[in-house]
């Protein structure tokens, strides 16, 4: 009778000891989330932990970043394995034309584009086309579209709404 009691207590102690040894998923998840928060390169990554398996999702800027993220998470205590479902966002290319040149040909294009619009004065100052006058909302849209397709910077602060 006494023996059964002791063994029951022992079993209970062992059970409690084992459970407390094994980190809880929620605690592991919190640790990983803290690590993600601390590292700017891991921004945009989310994690969920189940039975010690950490599943990562979100966007990484490149493959190296994705691998590093996985490595960092795998190193955290309590993580048995990592399922890396992060996607790599393709880089956004820089436009071919960043420079805007206002040469004679471009000026002519701007003049051509404004030819049919009445009541607008066009000047060129530095690298900008300076427009003044008054226009309808629709015409303003057309003018801006024309200027930008010709790669021309503009000053339209004196272009008023009709």
């Amino acid at each position: 009778m006494k023996l059964t009691k002791i063994s029951l207590v022992a079993a209970l102690i062992i059970a409690v000891a084992f459970t407390s040894c094994k980190p809880k998923d929620a605690d592991v998840q919190a640790k990983i989330e803290a690590a993600i928060k601390a590292d700017a390169s891991m921004a945009g990554t989310t994690v969920s932990v189940k039975d010690g398996v950490a599943t990562l999702s979100g966007e990484c800027k490149d493959d190296a970043c994705k691998a590093n993220c996985e490595k960092a998470v795998a190193a955290i205590k309590g993580v048995k394995s990592v399922v890396n479902n992060c996607t790599v966002t393709p880089p956004v290319a820089a436009p071919a034309t960043l420079t805007t040149v206002l040469d004679a040909a471009t000026m002519q294009k701007v003049k051509d584009g404004l030819k049919d619009l009445k009541g607008i004065t066009l000047d060129f100052a530095g690298d900008k086309a300076v427009l003044s006058g008054s226009v309808t909302k629709a015409d303003r849209m057309k003018i801006m579209q024309m200027l930008m397709s010709a790669h021309v910077k503009s000053d339209v602060t004196k272009l008023l709404d009709k």
Binding site: T97, K128, V156
Partner: peptide
């Protein structure tokens, strides 16, 4: 959207090609 974000499109801070 451009016209909405920059009313009158007069800020000169966007080249939309």
């Amino acid at each position: 959207i451009y016209d909405k974000l920059d009313p009158g499109m007069a800020s000169g801070d966007l080249m939309l090609n």
